[in-house]
Simulated assay, not measured.
Amino acid sequence: MEKMKVRELMRPIDEFPRISSRATFMEAVESLDSADLAFRAGKAPERIVLVSDERGRIIGKLSPIDVVKALEPNFSYINDLKIGFHKHLVQASLDSMKELYRVWHNPLLDLWQKATSIRIRDFINRPQPDQMVHADDTMDTAFHRFVEGRHGSLFVRDGGEIVGLIRFSDVYRKIKEAMRLAPVGEATAETV
């Protein structure tokens, strides 16, 4: 597997449902529901919904956590602060900042009313460098990104465009196959 390229295990973007970044908040919710139903019915390999820009290029993926974060407009500000702080920031400090910015203090109905005017482009997270690999990278690069970032999938780029996703579940399946085909020999006194 050391010589295997990412492109050999990636799934092309055509395998995933898409939604426009101009779609409404409610369209995002409906799209996620449809993806979930297709996954549960065995018609889709994953619940992933890709987000495309005006030109049809993939700019991210939509998840339920994105929808929930969109309900609280100050949440993204807190997350931005968290990224800039030192790793050892005490949780108490973060909690007091959340209190200061009143994250989740409005009743859910009020938040829902505000969310009806939101578009996906207003709350979607763009892929970060640690969430991407190049199609011609070897699998060790993907392994490193999966382990370090604890990602369920990584975006695959080729020529500057996102062309697919590599899912951890596919990588793990391939690792199991490789281990079963090449069992480790029994250790002897001479080899230890």
Score class of each variant (00 low, 15 high):
Glu2Lys: 07
Lys5His: 02
Val6Asn: 03
Glu8Lys: 04
Arg11Leu: 07
Arg11Thr: 06
Pro12Cys: 10
Pro12Asn: 04
Glu15Asp: 05
Pro17Gly: 03
Pro17Trp: 06
Ser20Asp: 04
Ser21His: 01
Ala23Tyr: 00
Met26Ala: 11
Glu27Ser: 14
Ala28Trp: 00
Ser31Phe: 14
Ser34Ile: 04
Ala35Met: 12
Asp36Lys: 15
Phe39Cys: 00
Arg40Phe: 03
Arg40Trp: 12
Ala41Phe: 15
Pro45Ser: 07
Pro45Asn: 08
Glu46Gln: 08
Val49Phe: 02
Val49Cys: 13
Val51Gly: 09
Val51Ala: 13
Asp53Asn: 15
Asp53Thr: 12
Arg55Cys: 15
Arg55Val: 08
Ile58Asn: 02
Ile58Met: 08
Ile59His: 07
Gly60Tyr: 01
Gly60Gln: 03
Gly60Phe: 00
Lys61Ala: 13
Pro64Ser: 13
Asp66Gly: 13
Val67Leu: 09
Val68Pro: 03
Glu72Thr: 09
Pro73Val: 15
Phe75Cys: 02
Ser76Tyr: 13
Ile78Val: 15
Asp80Glu: 11
Leu81Glu: 01
Ile83Lys: 14
Ile83Gln: 07
Gly84Cys: 10
Phe85Lys: 03
His86Tyr: 15
His86Pro: 13
His86Gln: 04
Val90Asn: 03
Ala92Gly: 03
Ser93Gln: 10
Met97Pro: 00
Leu100Arg: 05
Leu100Val: 03
Arg102Cys: 04
Arg102Gln: 14
Val103Ala: 02
Asn106Asp: 14
Asn106Pro: 05
Leu108Thr: 09
Asp110Cys: 12
Asp110Arg: 02
Leu111Arg: 00
Leu111Ile: 00
Lys114Asp: 12
Ser117Leu: 15
Asp122Gly: 05
Ile124Pro: 01
Arg126Asp: 11
Asp136Trp: 09
Asp136Gln: 11
Asp137Ala: 06
Asp137Cys: 01
Asp137Ile: 04
Thr138Arg: 11
Thr138Asp: 11
Met139Leu: 11
Thr141Ser: 06
Thr141Ile: 13
His144Phe: 09
Phe146Gln: 01
Gly149Trp: 07
His151Tyr: 11
Gly152Lys: 12
Gly152Gln: 13
Gly152Ser: 14
Phe155Asn: 14
Val156Thr: 07
Glu161Phe: 02
Val163Asn: 02
Gly164Arg: 03
Arg167Lys: 14
Phe168Gln: 12
Tyr172Pro: 03
Ile175Thr: 10
Ala178Met: 05
Met179Trp: 15
Pro183Met: 14
Val184Asp: 06
Val184Gly: 03
Gly185Met: 05
Glu190Ala: 06
